[in-house]
Simulated assay, not measured.
Amino acid sequence: MQLTRYTDYALRTLIRAALLPEGERLSVAEITQTYDTSRSQIMKVVQHLGQLGYLRNIRGKGGGIELGMEPASINIGQVVRDMENNLQMIDCNSPYCRLQPACQLKKVLSEAMCAFMKVLDSYYLSDLVEDKSRLIELLTVSEEEILPTAS
C-alpha cells in the first residue's frame, strides 16, 4: 500500500514540528523549503492537522506552528487514518467484478491492511524522532541550497 502524498507530508510536518526546541515555532515556508514542496499543499496539511489537534497554528506576530500534543501521544496509525480518505484497497463494485461471489482477494487484502495498520498503531511520533540530533542535521538547509550558485 502506498500512502497519499497528503498523508506523507502530514507525517513529515509532524516530525519537523517535533524536532523544534521548546518554545520555538515553525513556519509554513520552513516546511516547504525543508521538503521542497508547494506552499498550498503544506497549508492544507497544516490546517487539517490543526483542526485535528495534532498541531497548534498560531496567527500573527510571533505566530507559527507547534505541536498540539506531546509526541508520545501522537499515534502514527491514527494520523494515517485521520489523513487518508480511503483505506479500502480495492472496490469490487466499481466497476462491478464478476468474481465477487467466489473471490477471496478482498479478504486477503483486508487482512494485509489490518496487519499494516497494526504495525503503524504500534508507533508514536516520539519513536520517529528518537535520533533528534541526526534528524535535525539532515533537515538543516544550507545557504548554498537556498541561493543558486553563480557559475
Rank of each mutant, 00 (worst) to 15 (best):
M1I: 03
M1A: 09
L3M: 07
L3I: 03
T4Q: 13
T7H: 03
Y9G: 02
Y9A: 05
Y9N: 14
A10C: 08
R12V: 04
T13P: 06
L14D: 08
R16Q: 09
R16F: 15
L19R: 08
L19T: 09
L20Q: 09
P21M: 03
P21V: 10
E24T: 15
E24N: 10
R25A: 12
L26P: 08
S27A: 02
A29E: 15
E30C: 09
I31D: 01
T32R: 14
Q33M: 13
T34R: 09
R39K: 07
S40A: 13
M43S: 14
V46N: 06
V46C: 06
L52T: 03
G53Q: 03
L55D: 07
R56A: 09
R56S: 15
G60I: 06
G62N: 09
G63V: 04
G68D: 13
E70Q: 12
P71N: 10
P71L: 08
I74M: 10
N75V: 06
I76M: 14
Q78S: 03
V80W: 12
R81W: 01
D82E: 12
D91R: 10
P95I: 04
P95M: 04
Y96Q: 00
R98T: 05
L99S: 11
L99E: 14
A102V: 11
C103R: 08
Q104E: 11
Q104N: 10
Q104A: 08
K106Y: 04
V108S: 00
V108C: 04
L109V: 03
E111V: 00
E111R: 05
M113H: 01
M113F: 01
C114G: 04
A115T: 11
A115V: 13
F116M: 02
M117P: 00
K118L: 00
K118T: 04
V119W: 03
D121R: 12
D121P: 15
L125S: 00
L128M: 08
V129L: 05
E130M: 10
E130L: 10
D131T: 06
K132G: 10
R134V: 10
E137D: 13
L138S: 14
L138N: 14
V141K: 08
V141L: 13
E143G: 07
E143S: 11
E144K: 12
E145P: 02
P148Q: 13
T149E: 12
